[in-house]
Every structure is written in structure tokens, then in C-alpha cells.
Nucleic acid binder design. Structure first.
Lengths: 332, 332
DNA sequence: TTGAAAGCGCTAACAC
DNA sequence: GTGTTAGCGCTTTCAA
């Protein structure tokens, strides 16, 4: 592998001139430039990023810590983020914490050791030490998908999302409503449910039934319990799309029609939702905006204090086939 | 940030001794070791990986180039690979080529510039220059998900997978069969279809209908065309699960029951398949094995010639709800 | 065992 | 503009 030295020698110029040419900060005379370029081509020379990183004290790389890259919501986020970052000339380290606080922590410190220019983290679970660690480092850290008190973050307005879901159901005429509430990512889910019940209340409706459990398919599959109640709900709100998919399966399996017998609405807008039959109504998170803002905050760490640099992204209601006006229930 | 120099000074030893202690290659006397560790703790010293990389000429990092990380099959693969690599002390760069040959190429050369210790690539499309570039570099490159002539690769035995699907349909009693054939990833798909038709032929059955198109939902949604034929197939083979999902949607939408009216089988085993109603029968790729082998080949580049180091992974038939014996068709 | 010293390949003063 | 030079922080001979 040729070095800058080889190029300089071959071009008959000083090593410094080659560096100047490469970084075109300091101008280089046209004829020398030509000779340098020629030598570069001849050798197939490429600058060694390891050396450059050591010298410049920056690596043009950032780490992305996610709980599980095979979760489509995170994968989509990773895609958007990686594109933005790459377009700005920075590479992304994929760090899958597997929902494990120890692994997450190890990834974080490893990224610091590697002199990553920044870190984006989607952390999950109360066991995470990242908020503490992030506060101690000078490396820019952006918390994605959920806000962290006093630190830089980008998250959807979950409370608003909850109200959107409620208002949608209300406007359709539902008054007997159930909710499937995950308890994994505490703050986010609480906000969703908070917004949901508040908006319901504002419409004079109380949330009739609530089922708690971990935020996954299994929780959704308990939807059938709700339908076996003496007065089953006419609509069900699931705190995310995965839970909604679970509900969709169990409801259809047990012969309930969606939305004729019961309306179903989720949260997130994962791709699978729109492929279902009927397609799932949901509160869509704006993944592009989430990713773009995170990249922006990382790339341009402004002088503003951390708490002033948290972005809140507006969600949007997607009315698809799984929600409709309630059927008359006189016969039941 | 403290350097190795600071630690040496504080511990009253030479810089070299600290390095020896850190890498415990060369032994260090116990008392010195203790003093060094103490200084390390006091400073919160961490070795600078940029400097180490420059000196050691290796970065403990590899690049993973994928066409689209939001594709669940690739995301799953990325997860497995990242875990294996991380457990071996290697970080993974996520490089999303967005199905773009130019972007893919740029990622590849960038990884080379960064002195990545290896590169795993899932490339897509005939436009890819990676096989050529990979042949020219000394950096280990592993092609994942599809074999490349003369280079190191790990891929599922697609031909076998095709025969598995065919035998399954045959054993169920199907004789009138259609196929939805994607034409994106040429070699893989050709092998799947090749195995499928060969096994069918071995059972005395000819593939009755074939629809070609790009490997996506839209192709699947043409399944209905097959059902409108005078003698519609009793079973449909889709060359991947995404196509199968498209078929599933359109078939159910148009009132065809699965598997009563028509059996449906896919390829890959993406998670969504098992969540459908009925759950999708499919030829499952062994994603763990694919990822593990790729990591293995990268971590331990043996002396064997490239073509002798390509792994072929055995797929497995998953009989789920979407396939069953054909209904008697006398009435039609 | 330990320490001194020579770089890894590059950038960024600095003097000319 | 151009060349010289001093490192970035670390590893690794080499002698002692």
C-alpha cells in the first residue's frame, strides 16, 4: 500500500504539498497538482483513515445502539439515519444491545474508546445506564425514540399520538373502548395511554377496559379476553403495532370480524400493518423525521444547552381498514 | 483525556511497561502492575483505538454492506452477524447500499480506506461491481446470501430449497401448480426455480403456470391472474416470502381461501410469514447458520483457496397453515 | 523484566 | 505556494 510519502516522492514534491492537495485547504499550483494526481492514480493511493483519525482527533464515524435491529421499527430508523450520516461523510457502527444493559454499556464505552464522533442510542428498559454515562462524556450523544431528562433526544410526541387515536375512535362513534397497554418502554407508553385517556375523557368517554403486559405479540393475543366480556368493547387501542398484530390474529382466529365486530388501532406504523387484511389503522411515527433530526443534532452540536436541543416529532393518524363506526349492538 | 504517557508517569514506570501490561504479552512484575492499574483507575484511562489501529495495522472492525437494512431478512442476518463479530471483539459498520451500485461501491472503497479488517457483502443486482473489486483487494471479503464464482461466499442451497418446496406440494397431492418468479437476484432465484421444476418433473408433474416480475409485493399481487385461468392451479410457489405475502393478500381479498382453494408456499421464512392467517408455509433459510458462517470465514481466513471456502447452508421446509391437500375439483 | 527509541501515515503549524 | 518538522497515542523491536 502506497503512502503519502511515496506519492510525494513520485510527484517530486514535498509530503506536505500532497497533504495540502488532498485536503484542498491550502492551495497548490496547477502543475504540481497535476503531477500529484498522476502519482496518486499510478499508485492507486488512498488516504489511510486510521492515520488521519489519529491526527485529526476525529473518526468520521458514529455509533448507533439499538435494542434489536431485527425489530422493523428500529431497522427503518437505522436505515434513515445511516443514509443521512453517510451523505455527510460519516460511517455508522451498528451496535445491537439485544435488550441487554451490560451489552449496551459495553458498546457505549467501546464507542468512546474508538473515538466515535457521536453516539445515537435507542435504549430500552429501566436497567440502562446510558443516561448516566452519556451525561459524563463529552462525546455528543443523542437519545432516539424516547426523551431523556436534561439530555439531547429526539422522540415522537407520544401523548399527542394517544390523543389522535382517541379522537379518531370518538369521531367514529365508539364509546365502549378497550386498551392493550405494554409496560416495556415505560415513559413512551405511559404518554400514549395518558393522551389516549385524556382525549377520551375530553369527549366524555371513559376507557372501559385495560389489559397490561409486556409490549409484544402475546399481549395482543389477549384481546380475545376483552371480547368475551359481557359488554365487549367496540374498539381496541394497542400501544404499538406489534401488539396490534397479536390482537388482529387472535380476533380473526376466534371469528371476530375487523372492523365490523371490533375496530383495532395500533401505534408506530410498521410496514406489516398496511399489509394485513384489513390493513391496520395506526398512529404513524414519522421515522424519516426522527432519523433526520437525530443526524442533524449529531452533526451540528450547537451551543444550546442539552434540554433545549430535544426534538419532538409530530405523529399522524392513519385511517385504514381496521377501524370503522361501531355496529349497532341492540341485538347483543 | 489521559494517555499512556500520563499513566506511565503517574505509576513511575516506563511507557513501554504500561503498554506491556495493557496487552499482557510481555510479563510485568506484580508491584508495577498494581501501580499501573492504580494509575489507570485514577485517570479513568482507556486505550485510544485510533492510535492502536494505526500502529497495529488492524482496526477490529468489519463492514457489512446490505441492499436495505429495513428488509427483515437482511436485518435478521445483520443481527446474527453483529453478535458473532462483537463477541469476537469486532465492531460492525452498517453500510446500506439502497440497491444502488454506486453507493455500494463507495461504501466498499470507504471500508478499504478505513482499513476494515474484513467486509461482508450482500449485493444485489447485476450492476454490482463488488465481485470485481473484491477480487482485487487483499482485505477478506465474504459474499453473503449468494455465491460468487471463485470468491468466498455463504449462501443457502437454493436449488435444494426449490426441490423441498416441490416435494412438499407433490406429497400433498398437487399436480396443477403455478409459480411466481422474481427476477431480481438472478442466480438465487434461478436455482430455486430450477430445483422446483426438476423435483416436480421427477414426480411426473410439469409446472403449469409461471408469472415473472420483480421480486416484490406487486408480483405476488398478480396471483389472482392465475386463479382466473380456466384451470387454476391448486398450489402456488412464490420465490420468496415477500412475493408470497402479496399473493396472500390478493388471494384473500378476492375471496379465495388458503389453503382450501389454493395452497401457497414461500421461501426465506421472514417473521411476518408465521404471523399471517393462515401462517405461511415456506422454505426456511437458516439465518443463524448463514450469519455464523460468514463471521467464521471472516475471523479465520484460512489458507484454503477461495473457492474451497464457500459454505452452503441447508434450508428446511416449514409446513404451516397455507398448504394442504388440494380439494376435489370435479365440480369446476 | 524493563526502558529507550523508532516509527505507523498523516496533518498542521511554521518558516521560507 | 512550498517544504520542513513536530507530533497524534500507541506498539514493538532492541539492549541492557
Amino acid at each position: 500500500m502506497a503512502t503519502i510519502k511515496d506519492v510525494a516522492k513520485a510527484a517530486g514534491v514535498s509530503l506536505g504539498s500532497v497533504s495540502h492537495y488532498l485536503n484542498n485547504q491550502v492551495p497548490v499550483s496547477p502543475d504540481k497538482a497535476a503531477r500529484i494526481q498522476q502519482a496518486i492514480d499510478a499508485f492507486g493511493y488512498r488516504v489511510d483513515q486510521s492515520a488521519r483519525s489519529l491526527r485529526r482527533r476525529q473518526t468520521q464515524s458514529v455509533g448507533l445502539i439499538v435494542p434489536d435491529i431485527s425489530n422493523p421499527f428500529y431497522a427503518e430508523l437505522a436505515r434513515v439515519l445511516e443514509h443521512r450520516l453517510w451523505d455527510a461523510g460519516v460511517q455508522t457502527f451498528l451496535c445491537d444491545s439485544a435488550h441487554d444493559a451490560k451489552r449496551e454499556r459495553a458498546h457505549f464505552t467501546n464507542l468512546l474508546d474508538r473515538q466515535a464522533d457521536g453516539i445515537v442510542v435507542i435504549y430500552e428498559g429501566k436497567a440502562s445506564e446510558l443516561p448516566k454515562l452519556a451525561a459524563e462524556t463529552s462525546t455528543p450523544v443523542v437519545f432516539l425514540d424516547r426523551p431523556v431528562e436534561g439530555l439531547v433526544s429526539v422522540a415522537t410526541d407520544n401523548y399527542l399520538g394517544g390523543t389522535l387515536a382517541a379522537r379518531h375512535l370518538l369521531s367514529l362513534g365508539h364509546t365502549l373502548i378497550g386498551a392493550l397497554v405494554g409496560d416495556g418502554e415505560v415513559a413512551n407508553i405511559r404518554a400514549r395511554v395518558g393522551g389516549f385517556t385524556a382525549a377520551l375523557a375530553a369527549g366524555g368517554v371513559a376507557l372501559a377496559y385495560t389489559l397490561h403486559g409486556s409490549q409484544n405479540l402475546a399481549l395482543g393475543e389477549r384481546a380475545e379476553e376483552l371480547m368475551r366480556l359481557p359488554e365487549p368493547p367496540t374498539a381496541i387501542f394497542a400501544t404499538n403495532d406489534i401488539v396490534a398484530v397479536g390482537a388482529w390474529r387472535t380476533l380473526l382466529t376466534h371469528g371476530f370480524r375487523i372492523p365490523e365486530d371490533v375496530s383495532l388501532i395500533g401505534f408506530d406504523n410498521i410496514e406489516m400493518g398496511r399489509l394485513l387484511l384489513p390493513p391496520l389503522s395506526t398512529v404513524a411515527q414519522d421515522i424519516s423525521a426522527l432519523g433526520a433530526h437525530a443526524a442533524e443534532l449529531l452533526l451540528n452540536p450547537s451551543e444550546l444547552p442539552a434540554h433545549a436541543r430535544s426534538a419532538v416529532i409530530t405523529p399522524q393518524l392513519l385511517h385504514r381498514g381496521s377501524t370503522a363506526a361501531p355496529r349497532e349492538r341492540s341485538a347483543m
